[in-house]
Design a binder for these strands. Structure first.
Lengths: 150, 150
DNA sequence: TTATCTTTGTTGCATTTGCAACAAAAAAGA
DNA sequence: TCTTTTTTGTTGCAAATGCAACAAAGATAA
């Protein structure tokens, strides 16, 4: 049995941990950088979709995004055609921080891929995308309250 | 720039989320399954090492492990030669749950690798191990209070 | 030996995280 | 149309998470 889960867990926690420490400099508290990046890259997105992208609980996303709003990084705007949803946009302050976040993420990405040939890096991405697609089906299934059978 | 970080983050959160939901059945609260598994597989390990294996904060590990002890899953025992450390061992209760955890983890591992040939799965593991080795250096560096230059 | 640094462990606080449970709008179905 | 289900959002807890700050044992160095 090739144990890939543990490796993935270790890598994800290590990098998230590093990012959280490094982004405190920009007054972003734990986890917030990820939400801000998605909102910057998908202006007008709703929080439900952000939660789905990040694979976090809806209520966790709701509160993280509320904090981003309170601290002036993003804005929520009503939709004309749909009273239920709130579209999310980065403020100037949010947009200004964005490049610092991507710079850090790119650096970490580079560290992660140190010693990888271009071909290896490409293979890694390709395989990871397939794993992610496999896994997100189960995540949605379980999150909706269903029980996996095994 | 091949963006592998996001994929890894998504996969890790999705699988951790699923595991946490599924292990509530065994009275394990959020995150605890990971600690219990490491202690079962490395009886006598100290919590500092567990934190390093999981890439979590030392104090987070300390409290998770204390909870495992309080709930009777593990025991802490003093060392004869070293008064500072406390060795960790699973109790019978902990040992009894272990197979259920590995069963779930193996299932998730299988889901993650659905559609993968043996060779692809092997490649995935090999590449992930290299990424993990690259990343853990920076994690230790940053966790010790040093600043990465980029 | 003594002084200094490192390792290991803990507690105080502030914060995030997430399950329940609820509400209201929208979509689907009859 | 009207009814039911799904989507989207919120708040109330309870719990995990992690940075500071501390303590004590051990290791290193002088």
């Amino acid at each position: 049995m090739t144990e890939i889960l543990r490796e993935i867990g270790m890598i994800a926690r290590a990098l998230d941990s590093i990012s959280n420490i490094e982004f405190k400099e920009y007054d972003l508290t734990k986890g917030q950088y990820a939400y801000l990046v998605r909102i910057c890259e998908h202006p007008g997105i709703i929080q439900e979709k952000v939660a789905g992208m990040l694979k976090v609980d809806r209520t966790t996303a709701a509160r993280a995004i509320k904090n981003l709003e309170t601290n002036g990084f993003i804005e929520k705007t009503a939709d004309i055609h749909n009273k239920k949803i709130k579209k999310l946009f980065p403020t100037e302050k949010g947009k200004n921080i964005y490049p610092f976040i991507t710079r850090e993420n790119n650096y970490s990405n580079g560290v992660a891929l140190e010693g990888f040939s271009d071909k290896e890096a490409e293979t890694m991405l390709y395989l990871l995308q397939r794993v992610r697609q496999n896994v997100e089906k189960d995540w949605e299934f379980v999150k909706k309250g269903h029980k996996r059978d095994y």
